[in-house]
Structure formats: structure tokens, C-alpha cells
Design a protein around this nucleic acid. Sequence first.
DNA 1: ATGCTCTGTTTGTCCTAGACAAATTTGTGC
DNA 2: GCACAAATTTGTCTAGGACAAACAGAGCAT
Lengths: 303, 303
Amino acid sequence: MNSPSYTIAAVERDTGLSKDVLRMWERRYGFPVPERDGHGERLYPAAQVERLCAIKRLMDQGYRPGKLIAMPVEELSSLAPRRGAQARTKGATVDEPGQEELLTLLRQHDANGFVQALQQQLARQGLQRFVQDIVAPLTQQVGDAWEDGNFEVFEEHLFTELTKRVLRQAVASLPQGRGSPRVLLTSVPDEQHMLGLLMVEALLALEGAECIPLGAQMPVLEISRAAAAHRADIVALSFSVAFPARQLPKLLEPLRAALPADIELWVGGSGVLRLNPPAGVRRFSSLDQGVEALAAWRSEHAG
Amino acid sequence: MNSPSYTIAAVERDTGLSKDVLRMWERRYGFPVPERDGHGERLYPAAQVERLCAIKRLMDQGYRPGKLIAMPVEELSSLAPRRGAQARTKGATVDEPGQEELLTLLRQHDANGFVQALQQQLARQGLQRFVQDIVAPLTQQVGDAWEDGNFEVFEEHLFTELTKRVLRQAVASLPQGRGSPRVLLTSVPDEQHMLGLLMVEALLALEGAECIPLGAQMPVLEISRAAAAHRADIVALSFSVAFPARQLPKLLEPLRAALPADIELWVGGSGVLRLNPPAGVRRFSSLDQGVEALAAWRSEHAG
DNA sequence: ATGCTCTGTTTGTCCTAGACAAATTTGTGC
DNA sequence: GCACAAATTTGTCTAGGACAAACAGAGCAT
């Protein structure tokens, strides 16, 4: 029962730290220091992988690696919130009544209870308010809790999966006609979060737009081909906080150039909040703006 | 209107070829030969990226890079099937009546029509036969068509997204009680395909098992924690053909070791067909086997 | 005190170039 | 025609160096 070892590829897969970063840290900070196999290749003991996971999680909360690696083991006690402690308390004030109950169900791993509670809220409030007043803040809170280390990875996954189901079900029950405009919804590679996309789809479909959901992770070159094939009027992309902000302009400019000028390009999600959008790209910082923009598009193209 | 350039990171993102491979090819085969920016960093012209995409697609069909890179431009004409031309004709013989219609709707990008046709089949056949006779072969055919270059990436994405919706909706409509056994369904990082997982879930849920869907891409270390938290009896993982087969044993062994011995570990999907499963890991090569294994589990744990 | 710019440090990504092993193809003997 | 050995192809790993973008803190202005 000796503890298993991980190759550098396995560590990259499990921690999300790139091979380059793992080698760099070893060179620069002296951690991790993996063993070597017969061919000089790194073999990371499980203990070091666990510590790397802990470090990564704290980094995602805003700590810097230099500090974390220097710390002995009482990092675990510094699980405290860091980035956005103020935003969190602000968020707590606009708490909906059902919010706390839903979070509690998640923490108890009660999948059935959570889905039922969600569906109850949906039935009570209607889709639009459900999305704006329940799902959006809940997603925010789960994200915050995860950043604070108050949520396990698998709890967040369960939340995402179950919420996606309820939303998709609600969208599917809407009358699906040949609406206008035709909105193509997707995300770029490296961006797998779909909840925001689904929320937008729900709101736009409610307003009678025809949504073409392509799922996540569409290669950039494919997006323009898809837009042409589906005769889309608008291409809508979603970016989560996790998306590397520096890559955004370099990604959006070629895409904008590849799309015909008469197809609008909309981007939204918490990943674009700080973005200065390139010419011809419309940035949304809230769900409401999407609905407004839809109305504006219609009056513009009324002819 | 000069054509945009891509950094090596962007090319990796869009083509799926790793930075290491891109540099290696340049060194070894003399293609691609990107320009350099002021700091000596690679800048790939759009034309080279397009060609790389074409090469990658043919590689996924079984061609080898050395040949493809040598070819001038008439690679495009060699779009023909290669790997599994025999499997394809074999598959075509067991064609269901609705199959061809569904594929046609996809090729016409008729999202609404496709969903309606799917739901019609579901209503007509019932969930079990719908999964086994419609969704499973259709997935196979779409995969084959994609390998042959007869499907665009975005057409495959649309298929996946719409089919997931119909399946999830069907699963959601099943009575959700406290069933037994409790089955935790997920996939490992680098494995994002969820359709297989959903098919299994549909079949198991039909039989009254309690499924805990955690979505895709769960870090290996988290899977065992999730299994404990949800008091799972069985952990079921899905692997698509695209998953690198060599990494499988190295991935499954630590996971098996980390899981308590009384929790079974089931793996399935076309990615494990050639796998010799490690001790304590059960491999499934068809959907039926899953249902059988469920019955076997129950009689074993009848006490 | 709050907001700004400027500078120094931190940190990730990119670079070159060599080595080797796993997978595949090819060649050989039966 | 089939099994096994040899040669090829191909991807991933290793090493250390370089540099720019992001961040933190100092100094100055409001």
C-alpha cells in the first residue's frame, strides 16, 4: 500500500497547474520537489499533489504563490475569504428568502431536495424572475463560497449540473417558433461554464428570440462558419471569471473580423466586466442589458 | 484588412495541437513556419492555422502527421474514410427507420425539427428503447460522420447539445425517489463528453437506481471525496474515444486505491473498449451490460 | 485621507535544443 | 499467411534562459 505517484502530466490534469509552472516553481521556490523515475522524469508523491491542490485553491482566492509556498502547513487555517470580502457582505443584504435554503440543501448533498426546491421556486415566480432573482444570485453565492473554500469542488459541480437541468427543462417547455432575431449562443475553447449562457438563453427565448444553443467550447474559426450556416443575427459568447482576461482582446478581434459586419457580436459574463470591448463588440455587465439590447435590436431592424 | 495572426497559445486552443507539438513539427518537418513578433515569439498566419486544423482533423481519422504535412493541398480531397471503413458499413446495416431523417435534419441545421423528431421517437418508443436504439446508434453515426469529415464541428456540437437536452428532460420526468444502489456519475478531467454518461443515467434511473450526476471533468482526488459525501455504492466513469488510452491505467489505479473497497468502480464508453481494466475496476463495452450489472449488484446486496 | 502615476518585484509563458519511449510500420523467418 | 524482431515515426519530457504582463508599494497630487 505505498502511496501512488503522479507523472507531471497527471499533476497538470488534477491540479490545473501547467507543466511549465510546476517546473518553474521547483526551480524557483524549491517546491514541489518530486522524485525521479529511471529516466529522470518527475514522479510526484500524493502528499505533494495534495499540497499543490490546496495552494491552487488558495491562489484562486487571490493569494499569491510566493507567499503560499513559503507557508508551512497552517495555510489550511488561512482558508479565510480574501478577495471581495466587501462584495460578499453586500451580496448578503439582498438575500432572497429561498436562497439560504437552497445553499443548505447543497451542503447536505441532497440532490433531490435541491431540484425540487428549485422547481418550486420556478413555478412560483415564473421563468424570468426565477433566472434573475434566484439562479443568478445563487450562482454568484456558490462562486463566492467556493472561492472562500466553503464549498467542495464536487458540491459546486453538483450545483451546476442540477441547475443546468432545471433551466434547460424550463427553456424546452417554451413555445419554440421561428422567432427573430436568431441568436447563436456558445463559448470559446477554454471556457466551459454554461450556466450564464443558459440564463441568457432563457431570457431571450422568453422574449421570443430564436436561440441556437451550440454548447460550450466552440473553436473560434468554427463560430463564424456556424453563424453563417444558421443565418444568425447575433452571436452571443459567455466568459466566466476564470477566463484569462488578457487573452480576451486577442481572441475577440479576429473573431469580429471573421464575422460578417451585419452579424452582431455580444459578450457577457463576469469574465468581461473589466474588458474594454473592441470595436463592433458589445459588452454586457448584467442580464437585464441583454433583454434591453434585444428590444433595441428589434426596433432597429423593424423595417 | 490584413489577416490576423495567432499566438502559439491561441493556435493550441483552436487546433488542439499542444505547443510542444507545434514547435516539434516546425523543427522536424518544416511546417508550420510562423512569423515572429518583436520578441521572437511565434505568430501564426491564419492560413497556416487553417491548414493545421485540416491536418488535425485528418489525424483524428487515423492518418499520420508525417504524411499529411508532406502533402501539398490535395489533402482536402483525401477526406475519405480510413480507420473503420468496415465498422461503418456494418453499422449502416442496422439502420433504424428514423435515423436517416434525424441526420438530415442536423445537416440542414434545423434545430427545432431535430428536437421535435427526437421527442417524437422518445414518446413512441419509451425511454429505454429510445436510448438504446436511437440515441446510442445516432451518436455513433455522428461520430463516424465527423471522423469522415462529413460533419462540421458546429453540427456535432449542436447535435450533442440538443440531444443532451432531450435526455435530461426525460430523466427529470422519471420518479426520483431514494433508490438503491446510489450511483455517482461523472468523468475525469480532459474528458468532457457527457452523452454516454447521460445514456447510462437514463437506463439506471429507469431501473430505479438513484443517480447522482456530477457533470464532467471531476478531478480524481475529488471523486473519492464525493463518493464518500454522497454515500455512493457505485462510481461510474465514462471515457470517449478521444481520451488518450495510455493514461487510463495510471489514472484508474490511484482512483481505485483511493476509493473504499466496498464502493464499486465502473468504467464505460468507447474509450475503454481496448482497456484491460485494473483489479477492482469493472469495464463495460455496451449499455446493456450496465443494466445487467445493476441487477447483479442488487441480488448480491439483497440482504 | 483618497486618488493618481511611477517604479520594483513577482510570476507565468515563451524560447531553444536534446533525449528517449511508446506506438506504429516494416522486414525477416517459418 | 502469421509471429516476432528491427527500424521508424511521433509525442512528451528535460534543462535553463529571457522577458513582459500583472501586481504591490512608494511618492506625489488633489
